[in-house]
Design a protein around this nucleic acid. Structure first.
Lengths: 224, 224, 224, 224
DNA sequence: AATGAATGAGCATTCATTCAT
DNA sequence: CATGAATGAATGCTCATTCAT
């Protein structure tokens, strides 16, 4: 039986629902806002709760966004795993499907990399150790799962998959940040190399990732 | 003739020296501190100047660090250019020397990537438009210079070099951020994949960059 | 039933009481200090609250004093209205009672004109538009009420009362400012005309206002 | 022989000229700006001097404006004296000419009352005692001169003139401040009594002053 | 559990004035 | 005398978090 969230969330399922509601409100608030984290007051009122209530579900504001980010990357990883396991054909075909899926997801969820960019410098500076450990352990678990799916889908040495995924993640995150910088440079009126602005971010990312994976998986003959 | 900077820096070279002194003090203060920017008071006293004096040379605190970051990346790019132009031999040898030099530089200047990680989210939020444009234009100019050196050293199509450098930069920056995350995860007591912690950052970065450049420059034969 | 204000003012009447407490503390702090507004920290500690709490009740420091000034003038106007409506007898008797009451009130509340002197140049420079409008509208409402009481008490043409009151207010405010100047001149050791210092401010004001009202209400025969 | 002000003002007349230049620049800067005093830097550059140089001629910034205000009121008083001494006819004619001249002057020099409004609360708070005394003594001297001209022109008891002038000044200053308030109230969108906004400031002032002088000089028959 | 009132640490920047050159 | 570089005091306000109700 579906139930509307009660005024007081006593049942376990109500509490989980309230937590989810806060996460969603935080997500929406962040996506709508400028670069930085919305204030606790904004999140609370977007959720329809009082400020104090939010702190019954999360210890700090940053914890909310850390949880949100973990959730979002988990989704990405699950999708990637599914694509790798579903796609039939050559290794190249699988990689291609994986990358295309990743790029498409990021294009459809532009707030993901925006939030991710805050990660190291902002989110972790204000979380209790215990929660931080929990998050990191969870993230690592999913990462290793993803890595092992890559290993088996592409028939790689054990442990190679997680490494590839980490580097894919790194290139993605780094490229997004550089791309923001580039876009701002352009909008500031500086004339820059055509090569850097010809492509939208998605195409740029696909190209870069494709090159990386080609290098990572290939026995290569230098073109000259 | 050596000259001590006078109590009042009237001469142009004294003013430049004072500006440099502030930059160095800011650098040291940032390197010594935790993640965030040192306060204006700290920078001033580290330079041996009064707070107000700092604001004669920079409009905002963030401008100091933006200038510092620009300076640091400029140095990196100049070194890279020199290596590419100096190294003799095959294209692979040149790339190898370039990457080795880059990695070594970053290992010797660990504060560079720490500061860089603040870049987008922190530094640009409080700079006058004019200065921002100047910085970006300067950065872009150096980037294009570097790109064209890559083009000619490796005999690439024009414009390819800047793209390669941007992606190198992106992978570097992204990997560093992920690596911080990983290190913290380990130190938090979470057990993680051996593959991710076997290498120090420098080695990890070299591997990843090597793979990327291999993919970017090669005609590849898929290993299977 | 008397109630002590709780540590947290949840009830509406408690909130009003806290607001009033802040106003009073601000009043006392201003009266005790030199010419300029006390700092936010001073007001807060005089109220026995934390700085942040003060900002739950007022948006800016200046708003506090604007509210205080409005309150003080409102009181003056109410008293004046009462005097005009209560006093029996000739028009001259009513005017005389009104002026005597006004002068007495100002003598008993010396901080009123001190605060008023800051009005235009200081208070309004830092208030949100909305609050400013509210204050001005409230002031104007009371002013018109006062004007209409004057109209009917003295049987004047409609609209004449508000004009008379405004000019009374203007002469009062201007004379106080000049008087401060004069007092300081004397205390600086400058010898000045006996006529300017013979009277204390109250007497001076009464004389001046009496002359003004005589001129405003009379059919006059030039003495020569 | 006229001479352009030299780079170094050694001669006494050059120094006086430089002082005058600063006063004029301050006047222009204040008139052009918003309500508050222009910064020392602005005054200096408007004069074409360096900041430090300004402080060779005035001890504090406020002293500049105090001197300016004194100069301006002196001019007003001289004009008033001239009008009173020149105008022929009845006492009423003389008063009328005097008031008309005063109002006209103020209408032509709108910055005068703007600057005057800062007087007590701003200018005097930062002047050395010695200079303050000098200014006040000078002002008082001119005031007494004006008063005695009024006395003789209107054949009043000695000392009455200075009192009348002071009250005229007070009503003027107070009315201007109230008028500013009223104008802002209107521009804020508050609907106010027609009587208060029907007249421009000059007409309002003339009416009020006329009423005051009528009361001050007349033997009056209450209209009822 | 929910509320929302109370807390208070934290900090860049301006600008009048001084003083070395 | 003129300069303009150096000084440093001075302070309102936000907002994450706590805790009385």
């Amino acid at each position: 039986m579906k139930r509307v969230i009660a005024a007081h969330a006593h049942a376990v399922e109500d509490k989980a629902a309230r937590r989810t509601a806060i996460l969603q409100a935080a997500d929406v608030s962040f996506a709508a806002g400028p670069g930085h984290l919305p204030t606790a007051a904004v999140i609370a009122s977007a959720t329809g709760l009082a400020k104090g209530t939010v702190y019954l579900y999360f210890q700090t504001k940053e914890e909310i966004f850390a949880a949100l980010l973990l959730q979002k990357w988990s989704t990405v990883m699950k999708e990637s795993q599914a694509l790798l396991q579903t796609t039939k054909g050559t290794r190249a075909a699988k990689v291609s499907a994986f990358l295309a899926g990743l790029v498409a997801h990021l294009e459809n969820h532009p707030e993901l990399l925006r939030l991710d960019a805050l990660g190291y410098s902002v989110l972790e500076k204000n979380m209790s150790h215990a929660v931080l450990v929990t998050h990191k352990a969870e993230f690592m678990m999913r990462l290793e799962k993803t890595g092992s799916v890559i290993d088996s889908a592409l028939r790689l040495t054990e442990g190679r998959g997680i490494q590839l995924f980490m580097r894919t993640y790194a290139l993605t995150r780094g490229l997004w940040q550089s791309y923001q910088h580039t876009e701002e440079t352009v909008s500031a009126g500086v004339i820059i190399s055509q090569r850097l602005v010809a492509n939208p971010f998605g195409a740029e990312l696909r190209d870069a990732l494709t090159e990386y994976w080609r290098g990572a998986l290939s026995v290569c003959a230098d073109r000259r």
